Amino acid sequence: EEPGTYGVALYRFQALEPNELDFEVGDKIRILATLEDGWLEGSLKGRTGIFPYRFVKLCPDTR
């Protein structure tokens, strides 16, 4: 996996908008950016989108 910051999904998130990223509990999401209003941008399984930061637990930065 690529170096960078990752978050592990604490809850299932179902995308409601085309720019959102849906995921299941336990998915490991690569964090790409921190956005305003409590949203993160991340990538998972070749898809990129935004999601609420409270749905993931950030992992320590590992290489």
Rank of each mutant, 00 (worst) to 15 (best):
E20C: 13
T34V: 10
G42D: 05
G38I: 02
I50A: 08
R47Y: 09
L16R: 15
T48G: 03
E20P: 00
Y53R: 15
L35Q: 13
L44G: 01
Y53H: 13
C59V: 14
L32D: 06
E41K: 14
G49H: 01
R63G: 15
R30D: 04
F13D: 05
D61A: 12
V8T: 13
V56Q: 04
E17Q: 15
I31H: 07
R47Q: 05
E1D: 08
R30M: 04
C59T: 10
E20H: 15
R47D: 02
F51Y: 06
T62C: 10
G26L: 04
Y53V: 15
K45F: 08
T5Y: 10
E24W: 07
A15Q: 02
Q14V: 12
L16H: 15
Y11G: 07
P18Y: 06
L16F: 12
L21N: 01
D61G: 12
K45H: 14
E17P: 00
L16T: 15
F23M: 10
Y6L: 09
F13R: 15
F13N: 13
F51C: 02
L44D: 08
T5S: 09
T5I: 10
E36L: 03
E41S: 11
P18V: 08
G49C: 07
Q14L: 09
R12N: 13
G42H: 09
E41D: 02
G26C: 08
V8A: 03
Q14Y: 11
G4C: 11
G4Q: 14
S43H: 08
E36D: 12
E20Q: 14
L40K: 00
G26Q: 12
I50T: 09
G4V: 13
R54S: 14
D22C: 11
K57T: 11
G46E: 06
V8H: 08
I29C: 01
T62S: 14
I29Y: 01
V56A: 06
G49S: 06
R12T: 10
E1Q: 03
I29Q: 00
P60M: 08
T5Q: 13
D61S: 13
Q14H: 13
C59M: 15
P18A: 10
Y11F: 13
R12F: 00
P52D: 01
K45Q: 11
R63K: 05
T5A: 12
L58N: 00
P60V: 11
A33Y: 05
G26I: 02
R30Y: 07
F55K: 02
E17K: 15
L40H: 08
C59H: 10
T34A: 08
E36V: 02
K45I: 03
N19Q: 10
T62R: 13
K57H: 11
V25W: 06
T5F: 12
